[in-house]
């Protein structure tokens, strides 16, 4: 049965690719192993479009309170994103209380990380024209208008039934899916 998203559902959309000198398929394999060993993993990222405290945490909480699962929908793309592969050794949900990162988890070259489980390959189209930005300074803006230029990730709400391709805009080709789990997103840092 194909994966479907319903109107009113929240999704975190993200373009993904090679990162910190590591090919995407190796990142996926490594994250899958980390989830097996630690029970969850961190998916590293940067940029304020999905700031942990201001965006992802309130977004995920509000949808989860309504009984929904928050999906991380990842669209693979060619990327030569450069970041030094420095491992984060501490994380914090609030930027005040810091804890050590589980030894099985390696999050490299990132300022923030999503907390994920159940990472799997799942191919489906996400028509961004049928989404809107769920919160923050661009709240209400169509996903298509928002995801352009340097913006490559967003907290979105599905506004219409997906499955019927939006007429004008090509959909996002989702290749991987994961469940976001509490605390949903964290700050990470390196103390060496």
């Amino acid at each position: 049965m194909p994966f479907t998203l319903k109107p009113g559902q929240g999704v975190l959309y993200m373009k993904i690719g090679n990162h910190a000198d590591e090919p995407l398929h190796e990142i996926i394999a490594r994250k899958t192993r980390e989830i097996e060993e630690a029970g969850f993993s961190f998916w590293g990222y940067g940029g304020n479009t999905c700031h942990p405290e201001r965006m992802v945490q309130p977004f995920a909480r509000s949808y989860e309170q309504r009984g929904g699962v928050i999906y991380l929908c990842m669209e693979p793309m060619d990327s030569k994103h450069h970041a030094d592969p420095i491992r984060a050794d501490e994380f914090s949900a609030d930027g005040i209380v810091w804890e050590g990162v589980h030894p099985a988890i390696n999050v490299l070259g990132s300022r923030f990380a999503l907390v994920i489980k159940n990472l799997r390959e799942e191919r489906f189209d996400l028509p961004l024209a049928k989404t809107k930005v769920a919160l923050g300074n661009s709240m209400g803006l169509s996903g298509t208008r928002y995801i352009r230029g340097r913006v490559d990730k967003a907290c979105l709400e599905i506004t219409e039934q997906t499955g019927v391709a939006a007429a004008e805009e090509p959909p996002a080709r989702i290749g991987y899916l994961a469940n976001l789990v509490a605390p949903y997103a964290v700050y990470v840092r390196n103390r060496d």
Binding site: G47, N48, H51, N137, S138, G149, R150, V151
Partner: peptide, 8 residues
């Protein structure tokens, strides 16, 4: 300098 809403 607002990366999540650069045109705002």
């Amino acid at each position: 300098h607002l990366d999540d809403a650069p045109n705002l």
